[in-house]
């Protein structure tokens, strides 16, 4: 695989904190353009660390990370093609939803008329066009998350990094947002790296799941998810779905058993 053609290339990147904690053992990962890759694992497996390094928010202690062939921090052009969705909605409580979504454009200095049009489109994509003038506290948790996704899409990114975005939501809302995310991914031709600790969410969304384990954080295996049926509510209860879920669960269990033995 040629790393120039891939969206993200992680080459033996690792993270060690000054106190000696190994947050992440060396990882190799290549994400092709248009893929939906999920990092799945328990708390402390370094999945958020890996995502933050791809985003350029954390520096790897060793190894190399490139996004479209450039380092996440050195690039100018690729930077704008990368958006991050946080664990919580992280909206500015003092600004209306529209202004929150417009923020990345305001920071780039894009003129107001263009920006407002793009904000309108982004809000329409997530079904919040009627709430541009509301304050975040007036929205439900699910709607706040939608606004956060609209903010990440407003810059028209090619790569979307999502750090357990729906973790705090109830299951029904989460399932609905999963569906919306899938259709956005398809319609916009996005490349997505998605972090979760939910096996079911990982199977439902991903084209590939990267299974990770904790203490020390590391990658155990990669599982391609290639269902023969469409990803819809029927898929959630199909035997195929259950098979993938079991495969991932076994993989996670094996990893934790190994650690327990090593500790004993």
């Amino acid at each position: 695989m040629n790393s120039e053609a891939s969206a993200v290339a992680v080459q033996s990147a690792e993270k060690t904190y000054p106190n000696g904690t190994h947050a992440l053992l060396p990882v190799n990962l290549t994400v092709q353009q248009g893929e939906f890759v999920t990092l799945l694992g328990p708390s402390g497996c370094g999945k958020s660390t890996l995502l933050n390094m791809v985003a350029g928010l954390l520096e790897p202690s060793a190894g190399r990370i490139s996004v479209w062939g450039e380092s996440p921090n050195a690039q100018s052009q690729a930077k704008q093609r990368l958006s991050f969705v946080f664990q919580e909605a992280t909206l500015m409580p003092w600004a209306r939803v529209g202004a929150n979504v417009r923020l990345p454009l305001d920071l780039q200095g894009i003129n107001r008329a263009d920006a407002d049009q793009r904000v309108g489109n982004a809000l329409k994509l997530v079904g919040l066009e009627k709430f541009a003038e509301s304050y975040p506290r007036e929205l439900s948790g699910g709607m706040q998350m939608r606004a956060s996704i609209a903010r990440s899409l407003v810059t028209d990114p090619s790569l979307l990094l999502m750090d357990e975005p729906f973790g705090a939501l109830d299951e029904i809302t989460r399932n609905r947002l999963d569906d919306e995310l899938l259709s956005l991914w398809r319609s916009k031709g996005l490349t997505v790296i998605f972090v979760t600790h939910s096996i079911h969410e990982a199977v439902y969304l991903s084209s590939r799941v990267v299974v990770m384990a904790a203490r020390p954080g590391r990658v155990i295996e990669e599982v391609a998810i290639t269902p023969t049926v469409a990803r819809d509510d029927a898929f959630r209860v199909s035997t195929e779905f259950a098979g993938y879920a079991k495969q991932l669960q076994d993989s996670l269990l094996r990893a934790s058993v190994n650690v327990d033995e090593a500790l004993a």
Partner: peptide
Amino acid sequence: VNRGLQSLFKMNRA
């Protein structure tokens, strides 16, 4: 300041 918002500003090169 909210940590996430701080990261968001940083990523958008504020």
